[in-house]
Design a protein around this nucleic acid. Structure first.
Lengths: 237, 237, 237, 237
DNA sequence: AATGAATGAGTCTTCATTCAT
DNA sequence: TATGAATGAAGACTCATTCAT
C-alpha cells in the first residue's frame, strides 16, 4: 500500500517537477527574448526536454505564457492586497510596503519580474486574452481604492486623483525596477536595491525637493535604517 | 526649367506625401496591434497603397518601426532637452516642463505615443537594433544629468539618486499616460489630462501626503492656473 | 498442474478479451471518424485501457486496421464463397444468397460493415498494404467466376460481362447499405432492411421495369414471403 | 486603353491559369494519394510552383479540396439534372442518359472522377464540411425523385422503393467505374467502356437473367449500336 | 501485463521579402 | 513609381511510436 502510495506520490512530484522545469525555462526564455521572440524549441532546449513534451504539459504557447503570468502574478497580487488592505497601517506604511513587495519579488526572481513587466504590464490591447491585461489593471484599481480610503481619512491630499496616484506609484516602481532590469543602473547590489526601494516610496510620499518636511526627513532616514523589514510607520507630528 | 523644378518638386512632395501616408498608417497599426501583431499587408491596406510599395519607401519592417520611432522621438527628445538644459529655470519648472512636453505629445498624437511607449520603452533587450532601446535610455540619462546638476545646486535632496529620480519621473509620466492609453481612466477630456499632468509633476516634487509644504501648495495652484502654456517658474523663497 | 493450466488459460482468455476489447473499440472509432481521423488515444479511451497497451497488442495503427479488416472480412468472404460455390443452387439463389450474407453482416455489426465499406472498399491505391485492397478485389473476382460459370450454364445473358456483373452486384449492395449507413434512408427497421435486400437482388436479376417477366414477378413475391431465411430457389419455367 | 484592358485581361487569365494549374495538380495528387496522403508540398511540386503560392490561391488545404470537388461536381450535377428532369424522355432513356453522363465524365477526366468517388462519395460523416457529403446525397435524392415520378407514371415497378433504386443505380455505376479505376478490368479501351455503360443501364433496367424481355433484348442491341451518342428511346410495346 | 510520460519527425500555415511587369 | 504575384524560411502543433517503471 505504501508502495503504491509512494509510487503515485513520486509520479506526482516528478510530473510537477517536469512541469516546473518547463515553466522555469519558459520564464527564462521569455525574459531573454520576449514572447514573440521565443520559440517553443527554445523553451524545450532550455528545459532539456523533447519538443513535444512542452505540449504534454501545456496546451499551446499561449497557455504557457498565461501560466507563467498567473503563477508569478497571483502570489504577487495577494501579497500586495495584504499590504493595501491592512487596516492597521498608515498610508505611508502601505506605500513602503508596496515597494517592498515589488522589490522583494525582484530580489527573489528578477527574470520572472522582467517577464511580468514586459509581457503583462504593457502590450497591445487586442493581442492577449483579457485576463492578462486585466490582471495588471485590476492591481492598479485595487491600489486606487486604497488611495481613495486614505483620502477619505485625510491621509492623502484632497486634490489628488486616487487612480492617478496608483498609476504613478506603480509607474515609478516599475521604471525603478526597469532601471535595474535594463542595466541603466550599474550597481545592482542588495544595498543599492534597498536604497532604491526607499527612495521610490519616499519621493512618492514627500517629493524630491529638499527640506520639504522635517518629519519625513526623519522617517526617510529611519526607513534606510530599518531596510529589509516591513517598514514601521514614521510618525508625522 | 521652372517646369522641371516644379515637376521634381511635385514629385518630391508627392513622394514625401506617400511616405508620410505609409508612416502614418504604420503608426496607427502599430498602436492598434503592436509591432509583432501587425503585418506589412495591414500597413499597406491602412495606407491604401499596394503591398510592395511599402518596400519601395522602407527597406523592411524594422526600418519602418525605426522611422516611426525616430520621427516621433527626435522631436520629443529635442524638446525635452531644451527644457532640461534651460539654465534659467528652476528644477520645479523643469519637471513641470518635462510633464508638459510629454502630455503635449500625447495631445498631439496619442497613437504615436502609444507606439513609443509599447514598442520602444519596453521590449526585450536582444530583440531590437541598439538605437531604439538606446534612444529611450539616453533620454533618461540626459534627465539624470539634469537632476545631478540640480542636486549640486541644492535643488534636489542630497540623498536622492539622480538616475533613479529620472527613472521615477518618466515612470510616473509613462504610467500616467498609460492610464489614459489603456482606458484605466474614463475621463479623457483636455481638462482631465491637464489635471493629471499637474498632479504628476507636483507629486513627484512634493509628494502626495497632505500639507507637506505651503510653498509647493501655492505653486501647485498656480500651476493649475497657467495650464496649457509653457509653465512659468513658480518661485520658491 | 490444473492450477497452472487454468492460470495460463485464464491469462490467455483475459488477454484475448483485452485484445478483443481494443479491436471492438477500434472498429467503433474507425466507423465514427475514419481511419485517418482517429488517434490511438481515441481507441485507448474508447476501450478504457491505457495508451500504451494498444501497442502491446498491436504492432501499430496499421496493423490494427488490418486486423479489424481481416477479422470482419474473412468470415464474410468464407460465407460468401460458400454461397457462390454452392453447386446445387441456381444463379438466382446465389444472388439472393449474396445479398443475404451482406445484409446479415450489416445486421450483426453495422459499424464493422461501415469500416469495411469506408476504409477497405475504397481508398487510394498506393496508400495501403496490398492485402486490404486485394481482399476486396479478390471477392469481386470470385464472384465474377461465379457469373462466368453461370453464363456457361446459360443462366446469365450471353452478352453480359461477368466481371462487370460482379462489380454491379456489389456496387448495388454496397450503395444500398450506404443508404442505410449514411442516413439517406430514414426507416432502418429490420423490415425495411429486409425489403431492401430483396429489392436489390431482384432488380439486379430482373431489372426495375414493370411487368418484365411473369416468373420473376412470382419469385419476387415469394422472396418477400420467405424473407429472413436462406432463400429457396425461385423456379424459372 | 486596349493596352490596359489587355493587361488586366492577361493578368486575369494568367492568374486563372495559375489557379487552374494548382487545382489540376491537386486533383492529380489527391487521386494518387487521397486527401490525407497528400501534402501541400506535393501539390506545389506537381504544379511546379512555390510552396506558399498554393496559399495565395487557396485559403488552406481544405478549401483546396473543396474547390476540386465543387468544380468537378457542379458540372456533373447540372448535366445529371438535365437528364433526370427532361420531361420528354422515358425512364429507360433517362437511366441510359445518367450512365452516359457518368461515363463521359470518366472519359474526360478519369482522375477527377477518382477523386470524387474516393473523397466525396465515401468518407466518414464528421470529417468534412457538410457540403461535400451533402452534394453526393443530394444527387441521389434528386434521382430518387426522378424514380418517384416514373413510378407514378407506371414506368417503374410499383413495389420498388425509389430511394433505393437511385442508390442502386449509382452504386452500380460507381462500382462499374471503380472496376476501371482500380484496374479490376484490364481492357480500358473506349469500346470496353462503352459496353460497360450499356450493360450497366440495361442490367439495371432489365436484369441480368437471360431472355427476360424480348423488347428489352432489342433495345439492348440497339443500345449497343447507337453507343456513343445520346441514347434514343427503345420503345417498349 | 499495464501505464502514460517522453520523443521527434512530419505538416500545415504564416508572412517578410523579392521580382517581374 | 506602382502593383501584387511568387518565394521559401521559420515556427506552431500533432500524433504515431518508444521507453522507463
Amino acid at each position: 500500500m505504501s508502495q503504491r502510495q509512494s509510487k503515485s506520490e513520486e509520479a506526482g512530484s516528478r510530473e510537477n517537477e517536469r512541469r516546473r522545469t518547463i515553466l522555469r525555462a519558459a520564464i527564462d526564455v521569455f525574459a531573454r527574448k520576449g514572447y514573440h521572440g521565443c520559440r517553443i524549441a527554445d523553451v524545450a532546449r532550455e528545459a532539456g526536454v523533447a519538443y513535444g513534451l512542452v505540449y504534454h504539459y501545456f496546451k499551446n504557447k499561449d497557455e504557457l505564457l498565461e501560466t507563467v503570468v498567473e503563477t508569478g502574478w497571483s502570489g504577487f497580487v495577494s501579497r500586495l492586497r495584504a499590504v493595501a488592505e491592512d487596516e492597521s497601517s498608515s498610508l505611508e506604511q502601505k506605500v513602503h510596503g508596496i515597494a517592498e513587495v515589488a522589490f522583494e519579488a525582484y530580489r527573489v526572481d528578477p527574470r520572472a519580474v522582467k517577464v511580468l513587466i514586459l509581457e503583462v504590464a504593457r502590450s497591445p490591447a487586442g493581442t492577449q486574452v483579457v485576463s492578462r491585461q486585466q490582471a495588471f489593471l485590476d492591481t492598479i484599481r485595487m491600489s486606487a481604492e486604497m488611495f481613495s480610503r486614505a483620502q477619505a481619512a485625510g491621509e492623502l491630499r484632497a486634490d489628488a486623483d486616487p487612480m492617478l496616484c496608483a498609476s504613478l506609484l506603480f509607474g515609478a516602481i516599475e521604471m525603478g525596477l526597469t532601471a535595474f532590469v535594463s542595466g541603466l543602473v550599474e550597481d545592482r547590489s542588495p544595498e543599492a536595491l534597498e536604497r532604491a526601494k526607499v527612495q521610490i516610496a519616499n519621493s512618492f510620499l514627500h517629493g524630491v525637493l529638499p527640506g520639504a518636511t522635517t518629519s519625513s526627513e526623519v522617517s526617510w532616514k529611519q526607513e534606510k535604517a530599518s531596510s529589509g523589514t516591513r517598514p514601521k510607520a514614521g510618525k508625522r507630528s
